[in-house]
Amino acid sequence: MSLSEIETDVVIIGGGPCGLFAVFELGLLDLKCHVIDILDRPGGQCAELYPEKPIYDIPGMPVVTGQELTDQLLEQIKPFNPEFHFNQRVDALERQADDSFRLVTDDNQVFRTRVVVIAAGGGSFTPKRPPLPGIEDYEGTSVFYSVKRMEDFRDKNILVVGGGDSALDWVLNLLPFAKQMALVHRRDKFRAAPDSVNRMHAKVAEDAMQFHMGQVTQLHGNNGQLEGVTIKTTDGEIHHECDTVLPFFGLTMKLGPVAEWGLNLEQNLIPVDTEKFETSEPGIFAIGDINTYPGKLKLILSGFHEAALMSQAAHKIIRPDEKVVFQYTTSSSSLQKKLGVR
């Protein structure tokens, strides 16, 4: 089912620091933004990879963590009320006859916009696929990287692999549905919440499920139907029968559908000019880690600069008849009004 179409000035693909700051710069020019991100929250790599790690090269902030920077940016862009669409990936981007763009996400949300800003960093975060031979043949039939409907797992003989919160949560949540449940993790320490770990151990003690310490090394089955796996444990290899495997090994970045949008990629990066940070397709801009140009540095501060210049060019496309008078937030009453400080 297709949701109702959303019309906006700008769609920003990627809610990392550059995408967030683009909302600010576009907002100062009265341009309305929708931000789409595959993660379930804003911040991109800052939130996903290093929320608690310090960043030392944000101008004016001697030290700030990835999460703090994200939070500060969200505070900064609040006056512009950006609308976020999380857990969604843009699958299609097409230019329309009137030079606007039509975007469709994997949730079938459709956007119509004049300008697209790709701020997708290293690409979209996708679940890591264990490098087990032949695993592709089982994906979608016996191997799943996420659980959309628990009912789909009723009466299955499930093996969950991993030691974080996703792994433990799904062990406990799917246990009532499963015919059999087992967990494999490479060691006896878990990164998951201690309460979940205790509950899992209790279930093992009750014989409601199994726990194997080890690593899955082989998948066995036919025609996409899994019949079992080989688990390498410290005591040697064991065969474990199961028809469903849920591996939870975190996320990795993959370029994804961006590669199919005709943007003349160079080594998985989008070439742009350094005046407007526009791609080879007029109206499609790329800022932050995903773009490339002579001298490019993959720094957050470079992405901020790119966002500011891109916004000027985006404004010319969206409001061709309006002249932008350059103003400072320090002194301009109209900018201060937009920021809600006056």
């Binding site: 890591k128 030691g163 060691r187 990164r191």
Partner: peptide, 11 residues
């Protein structure tokens, strides 16, 4: 690092 090795293969 030990935690992060959970995300590696054939540890």
């Amino acid at each position: 690092e030990e935690d992060m090795l959970d995300f590696a293969f054939e540890v």
